[in-house]
Amino acid sequence: MNFLPYLVVVGALIAIAAASRLRDPLPKYLLPLLVAVIFVCLWQVAADAARYELKDADGQFVRWVEVFPTPRSTVLGMVQPVKDGTLLRYAISSVYRVAAGFGLAAVIGIPLGLWAGWYTRGFEALNPLIQALRPISPIAWIPLAVLWFGVKDAAAIFLIALASFFPIVTGSMTAVRTIPMVYVRSAQNFGLKGFELFRRVVFPACLPQIITSLRMALGIAWMVIVAAEMIAVDSGLGYLIMDARNANYYDRVVGAMISIGLIGVALDLMMRRLERFDEVRWGFSKV
């Protein structure tokens, strides 16, 4: 029995308790770091508890079987994909597909949503269809995507575009429909109309909500890419998981999962940076 993880957990909990009593501002990463340490320790404990002894016909111990890779074996399992560049290459393919599909969805979804939100008739015409297509999981489209595009980038990009399109179009549409009347009235009072009204008032008034919908869409896209790559293509982090599973490298499965989580956080932080521009900051905080 290994007591080290328990000791570390207790230590980390004490550190958290002590830190939360301090009045001074804490370093921003201290608490998240301690929580991560606890998480890894609990992982270690759970993985230890789940492994069992493999014995031969005579009851002789052969080796330990891990059904849940330990943190240590995960790190070791990732050494090779990191060294030979597979991990980086796959991560780049995944990010590329998400960027392409997400970009496509934004380019189509934002104008369409703004248009349908501004013209009541457009909303009445389009919204039911959009709302009916929206609950269909992008994963359900995988067979068709493969049929249409083959096991290629295009299939994955199509699925990502589909997954991001609905939050973006719905978000942009709602944004236009909820613009405070006082802005539109003021603009009309000052003689703004047509494209100028759109450029100076409608679009900037909607921008914070559009950014929020983009953020949501990117989150969904990043989740869907893994599923899409498991079936629709033969590279990427989703493929890495599938490939490792088929070869019985479960440490690599977990390693790929962690990479996906970390890249997801990085993508979200990038999106959050958009919220800080002067033109949209008003939509996210009081000051």
């Binding site: 006082v182 009072n189 000052f190 003689g191 008034a205």
Partner: peptide, 15 residues
């Protein structure tokens, strides 16, 4: 535009 409304909710543009 020669006759301007000033609203209680200001109506100025936050962006």
């Amino acid at each position: 535009p020669r006759r301007i409304f000033v609203f209680q909710e200001y109506g100025i543009f936050p962006w």
